[in-house]
Design a protein around this nucleic acid. Structure first.
Lengths: 107, 107
DNA sequence: GAGGGGCGCTATGATTTCCGTAGCATGGAG
DNA sequence: CTCCATGCTACGGAAATCATAGCGCCCCTC
């Protein structure tokens, strides 16, 4: 499966509307979680895997490749880290965290 | 696969932290998209399927059940619609839309 | 009351994705 | 050279997702 990008056809949308590409990319297993964990701290492959409840390395590597192709993360001396767009996405996801806490409170 | 709920163990987290439950629930195929489309307008099953690029009815129904169990959507006379928590989630996702547009602009 | 059409949804079998485990290749330290 | 940690790939099995067909229901019309 190819990496979704805005302007490209993606699963579920011929229009290439950016939000649809984002839904496709972020709706893959562990994608949101990986971004979240890298937002907390840059990590090496094995560290990251530990933070993500020992996700299988196959999937982790696939997600990392996709997120790298989407330019949301990059490899640095410290391991994997968010790029500026990646950090920006992290900020955009903050309201989601707050929402989740409310949601959790109501359950 | 059971529906993730805050306070419950979910894939990738024994802690039941709400954000992790959210990541699990929203990181399933079509979940974000379905919420998005229902935010645009309540829809019947078949309508919704059309809006979601004719996703297979099996998956659509599974997502609808999960989202209903999570109390984010409900069945009304008009078809499926967001609940109040669902609308609140929609608002929490708005920054993501704006981010996606920027992201799209840069690609 | 017999047909027709739309609806929500299920059945089924193929395909894709994800998973768990093992282990290879590389590189640095001793 | 040996040891050890790291990034990552191989592989076989399990689970999620897919496309397509069509059932059962209700309403409408004839």
């Amino acid at each position: 499966m190819s990496t979704p990008r805005p302007g490209k056809r993606v699963r579920g949308s011929q229009t290439g509307r950016p939000i649809m590409a984002a839904f496709d990319l972020l709706g893959r297993r562990w994608a949101l979680r990986v971004l979240w964990e890298l937002g907390e701290a840059p990590s090496t492959f094995r560290e990251l895997r530990g933070r993500c409840d020992d996700v299988s390395p196959t999937v982790l590597n696939t997600r990392l490749r996709e997120l790298r192709e989407a330019r949301l993360i990059e490899k640095t001396d410290q391991g994997y880290a968010l790029t500026e767009p990646g950090r920006s996405l992290g900020r955009a996801l903050r309201p989601l965290t707050r929402w989740a806490e409310d949601w959790g409170g109501a359950n």
